[in-house]
C-alpha cells in the first residue's frame, strides 16, 4: 500500500485472539486515522487489553492482522511509538532518575527537559525507589517515559487509572497537546467522560466484539431517544419497529421510549399522530450511548451503525 495522507496510523483487520477455549477478541476491525485521538471503551473483559497486546506484538493474533502506517510493526517503529500498559511493570529497585537515564540511553528522541517537566507535573520523587511508588505514581512514571520521547503514536491502556482528578486532567491535557502536534493516540478508559472530552473517534467493545464505532460528535447527533407518554397504557408501536431508523423500543406502562438513528423528528411526528399526552426528543451523551450499546438488550441499531461507520 502506498503511504499517503489517507493511510491510517493503525489498522486492525479481522483480529481474533483465542486463549485455549476462550475467545478474547473476535474478528475486530478498526482503523485509526493519523493525527486523531481514538477512545476504546468496554466493560472489564471486553477484550481491550488483549487488543492492545496484539497491536504491539505482545500477544500473537490467532487470526487477522494489525498494521501501522500500512505496514506490519517493525523495530524501527518502536523509536516513535509509546505504550503504557494497564499494569506497569517498572524495575522496583531503580529510582525515577535512574529510569529516566535508561530511557535517555534507549531512545534517540528522548527529551530530558520535557521528562523533568513531567516529573514535576506529576509530583514524582526522582530519588525514590520505584517499588515504593503507589500504583498511581507508577502509572504516572510510565506516562512520563511515554511522553518524554515525543512519540508519533501513543497507545495508552487505562492511562488515568489510580490518578487523582488533577493528575487525570493532566493526562488528558498531555494527550490533547500531543495530538494537536500531529501524534496519533489510542487510549482506553473506564471514565467515559475522559473519552468524551478528548477522543474524536470511539469504539465500543463488548464480549470480544466491536459493537459500535464512529465519531463521538456524529454519534451524538445521530442517536436520539423519542419519549412519549399516553393517557392509558402505551400503544404497541409495532408499526414503528419496521422503520429502518428505529432501534429498541422500551415500554413501561404509559411511557414509551424509542431509540432512533437520526434526529428523531420523523418518529416523534408519527408518535404524535397516536394521540400521546406528551412527546419529546432526548439527546444521548456518550455514557448513555455506551450503556445502550453494551446493555443486555444489545440493540440492533447499534450494530447497524457500527457496520456503517466501522471502517
Amino acid at each position: 500500500m502506498m503511504m499517503n495522507e489517507g493511510t491510517p496510523a493503525i489498522s486492525i483487520d479481522r483480529l481474533t485472539k483465542r486463549y485455549g477455549q476462550t475467545l478474547a477478541v473476535e474478528s475486530l476491525s478498526l482503523s485509526v486515522p493519523q493525527g486523531t485521538i481514538f477512545g476504546l471503551l468496554g466493560t472489564n473483559g471486553a477484550g481491550k487489553t488483549t487488543t492492545f497486546k496484539c497491536m504491539l506484538g505482545l500477544a500473537r493474533p490467532s487470526e487477522g492482522s494489525v498494521s501501522f502506517e500500512g505496514r506490519p510493526l517493525t523495530p524501527p517503529l518502536f523509536e516513535r511509538l509509546a505504550y503504557v500498559p494497564e499494569k506497569c511493570a517498572l524495575y522496583e529497585w531503580m529510582t525515577g532518575a535512574q529510569l529516566l537515564e535508561m530511557q535517555r540511553r534507549s531512545f534517540s528522541r528522548y527529551d530530558d527537559k520535557r521528562a523533568n517537566e513531567l516529573m514535576d507535573l506529576f509530583a514524582l520523587d526522582r530519588k525514590k525507589k520505584l517499588g515504593k511508588f503507589s500504583k498511581g505514581q507508577q502509572t504516572a512514571m510510565a506516562l512520563v517515559l511515554a511522553f518524554s520521547i515525543h512519540p508519533e503514536i501513543l497507545v495508552l491502556d487505562e492511562p488515568a487509572a489510580g490518578l487523582d482528578p488533577v493528575h487525570q486532567r493532566h493526562v488528558l491535557d498531555l494527550i490533547i497537546g500531543e495530538s494537536a502536534g500531529g501524534a496519533t493516540v489510542v487510549f482506553s478508559s473506564h471514565q467515559i467522560g475522559q473519552v468524551e472530552r478528548a477522543a474524536e473517534r470511539v469504539a465500543i467493545m463488548h464480549q470480544g466484539t466491536l459493537r459500535l464505532a464512529g465519531e463521538v460528535e456524529q454519534l451524538k447527533s445521530d442517536l436520539k431517544v423519542v419519549e412519549a407518554t399516553f393517557d392509558t397504557d402505551a400503544p404497541s408501536l409495532n408499526g414503528l419497529s419496521a422503520e429502518p431508523s428505529v432501534g429498541q423500543i422500551q415500554r413501561a406502562g404509559r411511557l414509551v421510549r424509542v431509540y432512533v438513528k437520526g434526529n428523531g423528528d420523523e418518529i416523534a411526528r408519527k408518535i404524535g399522530d397516536m394521540h400521546p399526552r406528551s412527546v419529546r426528543i432526548l439527546d444521548q451523551n456518550l455514557e448513555d450511548i455506551f450503556l445502550t450499546t453494551v446493555g443486555s438488550s444489545g440493540s440492533a441499531m447499534a450494530a447497524d451503525v457500527a457496520g456503517a461507520s466501522g471502517r
Binding site: G35, I37, I176, G177, S179, A180, G181, A198, A199, E200
Partner: peptide, 15 residues
C-alpha cells in the same frame, strides 16, 4: 489558536 483553545477547554483539537 486551535491548540490553545483545545487545551483551555480540555477538548479534542480537531473538534
Amino acid at each position: 489558536t486551535v491548540k490553545q483553545l483545545a487545551l483551555d477547554l480540555t477538548i479534542n483539537a480537531n473538534t
